[in-house]
């Protein structure tokens, strides 16, 4: 049972081309949104925030990056697998010599790569608006890759699970968005009032934001290993779920 490298590449390329078919939706819109946050919160209100020496603009860059990574990875990957299910084009994938590995690398890989491209553009744009630097560039890159891959996997699962456009939107909109906004994108958890700190600690996105912030600023709410471990654990859970899905043919084969 040999790995179908050509098939994997074909899926990957097709997905990437599909995602970049409309430049506006795929690049401009997330970049503009992020820039607006930076201008409004970072440049305009930044002076009023006291973060003990850290510039507020530089503080929210990793938070905003995480916001974009989570929403883009999830929505791109979920859309990527949902669309062929919706149009019926999935028949081809099911009849092709393409297994779990090929499908995952093709679909999830393309979504993750798109997120990485977007992350690079956003970091470039952010440099024009606020003054920031990256304390641990290699670790930052590794962490971004890990997050992009994990949430593309989550998106893939959502895309398989969804049997209507509504379900496709529900998790990103009702779960991911609130968790990210409440997850310390715009403020340090230590700034929260007593009990709210404990509430925040059950929000998994807090650890993601904290981890990325650590690679940028060199300090954060939680130890980096905790963040890293949590993200890796999440990635493994996603892979296990997908393995089960393919084994049972759930939502794929009749």
């Amino acid at each position: 049972m040999t790995f179908n490298a050509r098939g994997t590449y074909a899926i990957f390329k097709n997905e990437l081309m599909r995602m970049f078919r409309t430049i506006f939706g795929s690049i401009l819109s997330p970049v503009i949104t992020t820039s607006l946050y930076l201008v409004v919160f970072g440049a305009a209100m930044g002076d009023r925030m006291d973060l003990g020496g850290v510039n507020y603009g530089a503080f929210i860059v990793p938070g905003l990056l995480m916001l974009t990574l989570l929403s883009e990875s999830t929505s791109n990957a979920s859309f990527g697998i949902y669309m062929p299910k919706f149009t019926g084009a999935i028949y081809e994938l099911l009849s092709a010599p393409v297994g779990v590995a090929e499908t995952l690398i093709g679909f999830v890989g393309a979504a993750a790569v798109k997120s990485l491209i977007l992350a690079a553009i956003i970091l470039g744009t952010a440099a024009l608006i606020v003054d920031y630097s990256i304390a641990h560039p290699i670790l930052a890159l590794g962490y971004i890759v890990l997050v992009a891959a994990s949430f593309s996997l989550l998106g893939f699962i959502i895309g398989l699970w969804a049997d209507g456009f509504e379900k496709l939107q529900i998790i990103p909109l009702l779960v991911l968005m609130p968790l990210t906004f409440l997850g310390g994108t715009f403020y340090p958890i230590s700034a929260l009032e007593g009990p709210w700190q404990y509430v925040a600690m059950v929000n998994p996105v807090v650890y993601l934001v904290s981890g990325l912030r650590w690679t940028f600023l060199g300090e954060s709410d939680f130890p980096i290993m905790l963040s890293f471990g949590a993200t890796l654990g999440f990635l493994l859970i996603c892979i296990a779920v997908i393995g089960w899905i393919f084994k049972t043919g759930w939502r794929l084969r009749e």
Binding site: R6, G7, Y9, A10, K13, N14, E92, L93, P97, V98
Partner: peptide, 9 residues
């Protein structure tokens, strides 16, 4: 082209 590639040709 996509179909051809997907089937490993």
């Amino acid at each position: 082209r996509y179909s051809r590639g997907m089937f490993g040709s």
